[in-house]
Simulated scan of single mutants.
Amino acid sequence: MDACPELATAHQLVRDFGDMLTQQTGVLLPAWIDKALPGLSGVARRLTNDLDAVTAGFTLRWRSGATEGAVNSIKKIKRQLYGRAEFDLLQKMILLA
């Protein structure tokens, strides 16, 4: 990385981003985006589209992962049984999952 300063900068930006995630310091996100814009413009631009939601995701302790997992499981069962089963079987498969 010593031979390529851009790579070293990108490496540090990714590490800083990971630190913000693990330490839940969403307030540092706007400053990180300002530093990242020249090199990681695609990522930084997408984060600014909904900055309030991204900052809340970095800062708040609650997550919707369990709910999303349950929804994903139900959708998987629904796709597997599409056109092959009536509602009664679908209902039983979801309740057993």
Rank of each mutant, 00 (worst) to 15 (best):
G69Y: 02
D52I: 03
G42H: 12
W32I: 06
L90W: 01
D34H: 05
R63I: 11
T22D: 13
G26S: 06
I94G: 01
L90Y: 00
E86S: 07
N49D: 08
D2F: 13
A3Q: 12
A8L: 14
A70N: 05
T55S: 03
C4N: 13
V43C: 05
V43K: 01
I74A: 02
L96R: 14
M1W: 10
K35F: 04
D52L: 06
F87A: 08
Q23L: 12
I74N: 01
L47G: 00
A31W: 14
K75Q: 08
K76C: 06
T48L: 05
L51R: 08
R79I: 09
K76M: 15
L90S: 01
A3G: 08
D2S: 15
G69W: 04
G65W: 10
L37T: 13
I94M: 03
D2Q: 10
L81G: 00
L37I: 03
T25W: 02
T22W: 15
L7G: 02
R61T: 09
A70H: 06
S41D: 10
L60G: 05
R45A: 10
Q23T: 09
L7M: 06
R61I: 11
V54M: 02
R61A: 08
L28V: 07
L95Q: 14
R79P: 02
C4G: 09
R46P: 00
